[in-house]
Amino acid sequence: MWNESPDRVSAAEICSHENMSKTAPAQEAPFVQVQSLCKYYVLDKPIFADVNFTINKGEFVCIIGHSGCGKTTILNVLAGLDTASEGYVIMDGREVKGPSLERGVVFQSHALMPWFTVRQNIAFAVKSRWPKWSSSQINTHVEKFVSMVGLSHSIEKKPSELSGGMKQRVGIARAFSIQPKMLLLDEPFGALDALTRGTIQEELIGIVRDTHQTVFMITHDVDEAILLADKIVLMKNATQVDGSYTAGGVAEILSNTLPKSRKRAELHHLDGYYELRNHIVDFLIGIKH
């Protein structure tokens, strides 16, 4: 999935438009298939319509778009927390019908239980995943994932005693601890300051690369998407011009061909970075007008 094009390519190639339904590899079915997804609250005025994309195993997909274009709805449909009006999602050969332990979700507002300590919060998830485990098994597992996000020293603290970044780390550790087949992140760094965000992004890259996790993430930050994603899905809002209504949906799917070992600090020195970035920013500004 990574070497669709050589490492160094021209801007035009970096921004190669993919229409997944046409160019999807025929030899094997992708891990996740989103097909003609559509959501409306008012009939004939769908928020988005005909959304198609695929996620391969181990792929990191970011979705970018303005507020109200239905990013979170798509994520919730993937998570099984919401249902689409039309279309369906197939994961690993099975249709997504409801929430499942196979998909871990990191919520924008961390969603930790404030009455539990960090340990109990993660143990709650681990116990749900493996109900028959003994408490010592659960403890070792919990400690492993807490140390993975570097919070071993705060394991007995309540979420209220942690900073925003630490809370979000716990949220990530909780999602990873159930070892889901796919990880869904809803703007996990939206509420964090730039410095913290940078650190956690690096951590996330490290963990995802080590575990070959399949990830679907919503973001508003173009640089974040370029840093993390293998594939970037651009979404456009629904528009109403002179009474003619156009549904929103996927405008473009870009594959990120920057070297996989890219780091946040040297991202802007990489060839092709600015072309990719400008393309996305132009798109985001363009659809506004």
């Binding site: 099984g80 929430p99 332990l101 919520f107 995943r129």
Partner: peptide, 8 residues
């Protein structure tokens, strides 16, 4: 939602 995704 957390409880739902964890199939509690």
């Amino acid at each position: 939602n957390v409880a739902m995704t964890l199939e509690v």
